[in-house]
């Protein structure tokens, strides 16, 4: 039976039109998916960390502790949200709200399968980049408004870091875009039906993964919240659900970064046997697993080393890679 035949759906459909309906339903799905995904990723993180460190990780709530993050979320919601006396209150309150915006908006353009995409945009990739920069803004807001020196140092680091690492990130993406001749995400994925971009553009792929790790503030580039130096960096003063929102944004950003990598380099929904969505989610979660694995294996870089790595190593290499790509495309 066609869903559009139902009277109620028909009414809404008639009222909203096809685009808006997809938008509303998609947004609802995203709003459900984002918290569940971050709860799941927190559990994955703790479980993987546990097994890497020769311990079982959470085991008590549910089979193998799978419900642990949900319980934690309930606990965090019940906690008092403390606002420091000398904090800049409006900014302090706004920062965790703003940090979830990119987490939700970026899902709009991600093509999970040929049909599962909320909105096809001609500039889908640019939209994701534009909105992920907002998280830098909210980190700066939170760090500044806390009126805590650790938070401020963390925020300043965050801004410097995101500026430095966005350049090679965009440059490595450009080399893929030159090949596909399009900013459309579905177009880029369909171009990879035979050969993945990872094989054609290995340098760009590696730079992209390194930079997206840095952009999402994950170890070994987690200087923004470096625990042993800055206590918790920009969210030192946040408690309860506000803190949890920052965490949610971080884990969602991880998933979005992995999805981007899958779209750009790992063939998106392409794969044998299963349907597109299964392949897409599998690939994305595998990349998330790799970031978790890296986090629990490597020590942390120092800030000057981090900046040197971006400006003196990654940017020249990615520029060179872009140049070579352009020349090869032109000549062929």
């Amino acid at each position: 039976m066609n869903m559009t035949q139902l009277p109620i759906i028909k009414d809404i459909y008639g009222f909203l039109g096809p685009d808006l309906l997809v938008g509303v339903v998609g947004l609802l799905l995203v709003l459900i998916f984002v918290p569940l995904n971050s709860a799941f990723l927190v559990w994955v993180e703790r479980k993987v960390a546990g097994h890497i460190q020769l311990r079982p990780g959470p085991m008590e709530v549910g089979p193998h502790g799978i419900l642990q993050s949900l319980i934690d979320a309930v606990k965090l919601m019940c906690k008092e949200m403390i606002t420091p006396d000398l904090a800049d209150k409006p900014l302090f309150w706004m920062a965790p709200c703003i940090v979830v915006i990119p987490a939700i908006v970026c899902f709009v353009v991600i093509p999970f399968s040929p049909v599962m995409q909320i909105r096809e945009l001609n500039v889908g990739i640019l939209l994701i980049f534009a909105f992920s920069s907002i998280s830098g803004l909210s980190i700066m807001m939170g760090g500044w408004a806390s009126n805590n020196k650790y938070s401020l140092i963390g925020a300043v680091r965050a801004v410097a870091q995101s500026i430095a690492y966005e350049i090679p990130l965009l440059l490595s993406t450009m080399s893929v875009i030159i090949m596909s001749n399009s900013f459309k995400m579905s177009q880029i994925v369909s171009d990879q039906s035979t050969v993945w971009n990872f094989i054609l553009q290995p340098v760009a792929a590696i730079i992209f993964i390194i930079c997206s790790t840095a952009e999402t503030n994950r170890a070994p580039f987690d200087l923004v919240e470096a625990e042993s130096e800055l206590v918790s960096g920009f969210h030192t003063e946040y408690t309860g659900m506000r803190d949890a929102l920052f965490f949610m944004a971080e884990y969602t950003a991880m998933f979005i970064a992995s999805s981007m990598a899958v779209v750009l380099f790992f063939g998106g929904w392409h794969g044998p046997f299963f349907s597109g969505i299964v392949w897409f989610v599998l690939k994305a979660y595998f990349l998330v697993f790799v970031t978790v694995w890296i986090r629990w294996t490597f020590p942390r870089l120092r800030f000057d080393q981090l900046m040197n790595f971006a400006w003196k190593v990654l940017i020249p290499i990615s520029l060179l890679n872009l140049l070579v790509t352009a020349i090869v495309i032109k000549v062929l």
Binding site: I52, A219, D222, P299
Partner: peptide
Amino acid sequence: FVMGIGAYTPFLYGWD
């Protein structure tokens, strides 16, 4: 010392 540099896992290995 290693944990201060940011590697958490070796710390627990040593603890073990």
